[in-house]
Each structure stands twice: as structure tokens, then as C-alpha cells.
Amino acid sequence: MDKRVFFLMIVSFVIGMVELIISGILDLIAEDLHISLGQAGHLITIFSLIFAVASPILLMMTAKIERKKLTLISLLVFLFGNITTVFAANYSILFTGRIITAISGALLIILCLVMAPSLVEPKYRGRAIGIVSMGVSGSLVLGVPLGLFLGNIYGWRAPFVLITLLTVLSIIGVYYLMDKIDPKPAVPLRIQLATLKSQKVSFAHATTFLYMTGHTVLYAYLKPYIQTTTGMESSWIGVVYFLFGIAAVCGGGIGGTMADILGARRTIIIAIIGLGVVLLTLPFTTPVLALFLIGLMIWGMLSWLISPAMQSYLIETSPETSEIQQSLSNSSLHFGIAFGAVVGGIVIERASIIQTPTIGGVFIILSLLTAGLSIRSRVVSLDQKQKIAQ
């Protein structure tokens, strides 16, 4: 495996940390800037929405720019956004900093995902994507406890100081370690958009959205769910999140390896069935703590196992528009996270938090349906896409 792929994993981890690292220190931000907790929460919402929408748009706008150069420019913008965040004197400046980091971060994550498979032989493509996915998943699940730890000791700006320093190191690393990577030949926008009319592609994106929705319905409210069903003390919940995070990071690597060995299609189906079984049976394991923790770690692994397999599947399905498909898949993932949090909140308000795993399992079953429809649909050739676009 090309060592540069592991470097891209580190870069993706640094970028991904910014999204959720703030959630553990919202109260500290609210107190320091004299704003409500709800206003502080908007800093997460705006980031996630921009992150989901911006990546495909920016990828198309920058399609002709050499990839190393584009990565360096994006990292410099990302650095500026984090510096703005560190020195934010009020809410408006902090909000602006979040917008800047979201826009640049969205492009950087997808650049890491599309560059990684181009650095290795086709037979290692899934593993390369899986390694980068380990960085993304690791940042999303480990960012919260890391932000909480640094924020409580040194103040809410400390996590962003760390990210700023890591970004500087990433810029140096990209400049000296990465070779120039020419962009793929540009495919007209109308043809790229025409691929979404293909059931094989559209159902694949729907699968990612539904899968992550089902996962997030419970994960977004995991702490109160654990406290309600197991009576676990708050001091131990941080350990649970850490175990879940380790499992999720491993899931990205395992998913990439499985996609290379078993094939992307089989890996996707295995991940969906496995996650559905875990979520639907998890409520029955809460009386036995050891069994519950085992189920939790299997869930953590499966939650990110599908991502590299789906990326590989999309590359196989539409190789000439693979970059935009990977970007749209990343957007589907983040929209699923946002929608799952909303659905979970509705379940808690109108039913009970105990029902969140079951509702999450329903979305996983729906994702199995869309995955099957995608796999059974025929591949649309480039000539056919051109006809559809006309």
C-alpha cells in the first residue's frame, strides 16, 4: 500500500475533527460568548449543512485544477478558518469561521477520497478508500471526547488551537510528500447530473442516506439511551464512546478490505444486514452489560463498514463520473446524519428514547431494499448517459 494513502488518512482525520469536536464544548462557548445553548448548537447545524451541500458543487467548479495545488489552497483556507475561530471575539466571527472551515473542509475530504484510489493498483482501491474512511470515521467519533477533554482543561479555544497546528503540519506534508495528480478528464455537468437518473446510481446514494439515518437515530442520543436503559454512571459513558470510536475506525479499514476480497456488492449487503440485526436486537442486551458492550462495538464497526464499499461500488458503476459520485455519496452520508438526528429527536418527544434502536432498524431495512434495487439495476453506459442528458 502506498504510504501516501496513510498520510491522506491523517489529513482527513484533521479535517473531520472540526465538524463534531465542538459538540462537547457548546456550554463553554455559550458561557464565554454570552449566547444561548441553542445558538451555540447552530454552529454544528450550519457546518453539517454546508459540508453536505458544498462538496459536489466545489468539486465540479474545481474539476480542471491539479489536485495537489487544489489541496494546498484548500488547506490554507481551512487554516484561515480555524485561526478565525481561535481568535473569535464574538458569535458572528465564530459563525463566520465555521462557514469557512465547512466550505474548505468539504472539498478537502472528498479530495482525499478521490486521490487515495488513484495512488494504488485497482485491486487495492477498496482498501485505499477504507484507510481514508478510517480517518473520517475516527474524527467524527473521537472528536467529541477529545474536544471535551481539552475544552474542560484549557478552554473551548484549545481544541481549535490543536487543529490549527495539525493543519500547518498537513500543509507541510502535502507540499513535500505528495506528487502532482492531474484531474480526470472533465465530463460535462449535464452528463454528470444525468447519472442520477440511473436507478443504479440514485438507489446507491439513497442506500447511504438511509443507512446513516438509521445509525444516527440512536447514535445522536446514545448517552441518554445508555443512562435510561442501563443506569450506567456518566463517568463510564466516556469509555463507552471511546470503545465505539475504536470499533468505528476499524470498521472503515475492514470495509475496504472486504470490498477488495469479497466485492463491493457483497460487502454492502453484509454490512446492512449486520447493522439491522444489531440495532433490532440491541434493546434485548441492555440487562447484561458485557453483552450490550459487545453489541455496541459490533454496531460501531458496522456503522462505517459500508462507506468504503459504497465508494468502490460507485467507482465500478460510473467510472467516468467517479469523483462526483464519491462526493454525492459523502453528501448523502452527512444528510443522513442530520436527518437521523431529527428523527431521533421526534421519537424521543413523541414516544420514548427506548424506541430509537427499533426506528433506526426500520431505516436500515429500507436501505437493504434500495441496495437490492441498485444492485439489480443495469449499468448505464457513457453513450446512454449522453443521450439521457440531451
Rank of each mutant, 00 (worst) to 15 (best):
D2P: 02
D2A: 04
F7C: 08
L8P: 09
F13I: 13
V18K: 08
L20Y: 14
L20T: 09
I21M: 15
S23N: 12
S23Y: 04
G24S: 06
L26T: 00
A30P: 01
I35E: 06
L37D: 04
F47G: 02
V53G: 01
I57G: 02
L58H: 01
M60E: 11
T62G: 01
I65G: 05
I65P: 05
R67S: 01
S74Q: 06
S74L: 01
S74C: 05
V77S: 13
L79D: 06
F80Q: 03
I83T: 05
T84D: 09
V86I: 14
F87N: 03
S92H: 05
S92K: 05
T96P: 00
T96G: 15
R98D: 07
I100P: 02
I103T: 10
I103L: 15
I109W: 11
I110D: 14
L113P: 08
V114C: 11
M115I: 14
L119R: 03
P122R: 11
R125Q: 15
R125E: 14
G126C: 09
I131W: 13
G135R: 13
V136Q: 12
L142M: 11
G151Q: 01
N152D: 11
I153D: 10
W156Y: 15
A158V: 03
L162P: 05
I163Y: 13
I171N: 10
I171E: 11
K180A: 12
V187I: 12
K200G: 08
F203D: 10
H205C: 02
A206P: 04
T208I: 07
L210W: 06
G214P: 04
H215I: 07
H215V: 11
V217R: 10
Y219C: 03
A220K: 01
Y221F: 10
Y221S: 08
P224N: 05
Y225V: 05
S234V: 02
W236A: 11
I237Y: 04
V240K: 00
Y241N: 00
Y241E: 01
F244T: 00
G245F: 00
A248W: 02
A248E: 03
A248Y: 02
V249Q: 08
G252C: 08
G255W: 03
G255L: 07
A259C: 07
D260I: 03
L262Q: 12
G263S: 08
L275F: 06
T281R: 07
L282I: 10
F284Y: 13
F284W: 09
L291T: 08
I298M: 05
W299V: 00
M301K: 00
W304N: 14
L305M: 14
I315G: 12
I315T: 14
E323Q: 07
S329H: 14
L333F: 14
H334T: 11
H334A: 03
G336L: 06
I337M: 13
A338Q: 07
A341Q: 03
V347Q: 09
A351K: 10
Q355P: 00
G361D: 10
A371S: 12
S377D: 06
S377E: 06
V379G: 08
V379Y: 07
S381R: 04
Q386T: 10
K387H: 05
K387P: 00
